[in-house]
Design a protein around this nucleic acid. Structure first.
Length: 285
DNA sequence: GTCCAGGGTCAAG
DNA sequence: CTTGACCATGGA
């Protein structure tokens, strides 16, 4: 990856297997929006704007090279060799070969673990556009204001001080009590997310599931999208459908140590295509 | 009106 | 261990 200063920001080049659309619209994150030809998103206490230029280059708004390499390359998982993983996937299964080809620009984001925990609690039995709206209201109500119409994700302490009643404006329904339990456990130190991130997968999973409202699927999402654990494998209704129709009898182990990335390729693919029960697949135009 | 959504909990079989 | 009601909300 090359980085040059330009136009009050940085221009990244020589990056393969990375597209803003695939990475930011594949359902792993909820705080990014398409905005004048690029994307605007909030991570930590930073408002990031990115835009794809010609020749595979990407422009990022004002920061120094050190900050990008030190923080955001990790956030976007740009130092991992996705080419090697994609080649393995291609040889593994025809549908996965097709899926990784079509969504080849996906990078698994390393989002903040606390934000990921709350986000995927909210995701339970919910639609992606509505998840985004609920999170937007949550940040607007309880998060620190960063710029006009841009708010940081609220801290565990602030959320722990809320009640089901004060969370009502968020309109997250039955999930409010889940958020409160997560906030209380994290704010009190009873659940240390940094420690959990380093635990062996079964133990990490179990620790996350100690939160009321966190089951297997949400735990896997937090591990994959908020803790950089690429072996985690979330099974939502879409993935269950793919596994039933095309990977009968197989589980996460079939995909190896980067199963979570295979999961994401297949999840994104399945939402954009009609999958048939006979194991075939056709483009949805 | 009915069905569905990046589900989880709880009680009952 | 599996099944089903129930949970809030809003779009299709």
């Amino acid at each position: 990856m090359r980085i040059e200063r330009e136009n009050g920001g940085l221009v990244l080049s020589e990056i393969e297997h990375f597209s803003l659309y695939d990475t930011l619209e594949c359902g792993q994150c909820f705080r990014w929006e398409a905005q004048d030809g690029g994307y605007c998103g909030i991570a930590g206490r930073r408002v990031l704007r990115l835009k794809e230029l010609s020749g595979g280059k990407i422009w990022v708004n004002g920061m120094e090279e050190e900050e990008f390499r030190g923080i955001w390359a990790r956030y976007f998982d740009l130092d991992r060799d996705y080419g090697a993983i994609r080649r393995e996937f291609s040889a593994l299964h025809p549908l996965l070969a097709e899926a990784q080809e079509e969504a080849g620009g996906i990078r698994i984001l390393r989002q903040d673990s606390w934000e990921a925990l709350c986000s995927f609690i909210i995701s339970a039995n919910n639609h992606i556009p509505r998840i985004k709206e609920i999170i937007r209201r949550l940040c607007r109500e309880f998060g620190e204001k960063l710029e006009a119409d841009a708010y940081a994700f609220p801290s565990p302490a602030v959320l722990a001080g809320q009640t089901v009643e004060t969370l009502a404006p968020i309109r997250c329904g039955f999930r409010a009590k889940y958020l409160l339990d997560a906030a209380q456990k994290v704010a009190s130190g009873q659940l240390n997310l940094e420690e959990v991130a380093a635990l062996p997968l079964p133990e990490a999973r179990a620790r996350l599931m100690s939160v009321y409202g966190v089951g297997e699927k949400v735990a896997e999402c937090v591990l994959l999208f908020g803790m950089g654990r690429l072996e985690a494998f979330p099974m939502d209704v879409w993935m269950k459908r793919v596994m039933r129709t095309h990977f009968s009898g197989k589980g996460a182990e079939f995909f190896g140590e980067h199963a979570g990335l295979a999961n994401q390729y297949l999840f994104f693919y399945s939402r954009n295509h009609q999958l048939k029960d006979d194991g075939t697949f056709t483009r949805k135009v």
